[in-house]
């Protein structure tokens, strides 16, 4: 990645993300149950599972879009507490890509990409624009820089969203079902972008149903059901030799077609 100025110093020897005994409730509903997961630097983890299993909630806890009520989440050596300072430090270092892109419709593609570097990282405008163009080229849409998000296709919007996150030079990237809202012919262009990103050594956590992507890119696959991590395995073991019967059931259901 480009020179990451004013970033938080990288703590040596610690995992990128540590989740220890994390619980979360929505009111009475116990949505995350005793989540324990360590993610190493440069590791690429795919999280899958049936809908409502808490996978999105889990990765949204990592940048505090959701608040966990019990246990510890330590990102880059900083523990997530209600301390706003810590939350802002962590959010600067953790990029996120959403299912529905969530680009800012009132800003051009370029402005979407430069907003956070300018206002959060205090980067000079010219430098932020240069960085933005660099990443827009990486996702192969530099020619759309002056357009508004509403003028782009879904696949293009999602690639802009990826570029927008990368402009903050994050050390960890979270993907929350990045291809679920896309037309089939656009899924590939987004997955290709993500695979290229994986090749740069980025730490990635992806919630996705793209099993092909999991097989090519993931170091580990995490299977969740009912708010629990049921099984964690390397992709070959996971797909060829699933240990748990709920994993087997899930795989048989999604691989039928």
């Amino acid at each position: 990645m480009s020179d990451s100025k004013k970033t938080h110093p990288v703590p040596e020897g610690l995992p990128a993300v540590q989740m220890q005994g994390v619980h979360k409730w929505y009111g009475e509903f116990h949505v995350l149950k005793n989540i324990n997961l360590d993610v190493d630097r440069g590791e690429r983890i795919v999280i899958c599972g049936p809908s409502g299993s808490g996978k999105s909630t889990m990765i949204r806890c990592i940048n505090r879009l959701e608040e966990h009520q019990k246990g510890h989440i330590i990102v880059d050596g900083t523990e997530l507490t209600s301390d706003v300072k810590n939350i802002e430090i962590i959010r600067r270092e953790v990029g996120m890509v959403f299912q529905h892109f969530n680009l800012f419709p009132h800003l051009t593609v370029l402005e979407n990409c430069t907003l956070a570097p300018i206002w959060v990282r205090k980067m000079p405008k010219a430098e932020a624009e240069e960085t933005a163009m660099h990443f827009l080229e990486k996702v192969r849409i530099p020619e759309q820089a002056q357009k508004y998000p509403g003028q782009l296709s879904g696949g293009q919007q999602q690639r802009v969203a990826i570029a927008r996150s990368l402009c903050m030079s994050p050390r960890i990237m979270l993907f929350d079902e990045p291809t679920s809202a896309l037309d089939p012919e656009m899924i590939k262009e987004v997955l290709d972008t993500m695979i290229e990103l994986a090749e740069t050594g980025m730490t990635m956590l992806c919630v996705t149903h793209e099993m092909g992507f999991a097989k090519t890119v993931a170091n580990r696959v995490v299977f969740m059901d009912g708010g629990e991590i049921i099984e964690t395995n390397d992709p070959h073991q996971f797909f060829d030799n699933p240990q748990h019967e709920r994993t087997q059931l899930f795989l048989s259901q999604i691989l039928q077609h």
């Binding site: 802002e88 959010r91 600067r92 907003l115």
Partner: peptide
């Protein structure tokens, strides 16, 4: 939409 708030939060604003 809630996503706009979340995207801004996630960028560290």
């Amino acid at each position: 939409p809630k996503g706009q708030y979340e995207a801004a939060d996630a960028l560290g604003l």
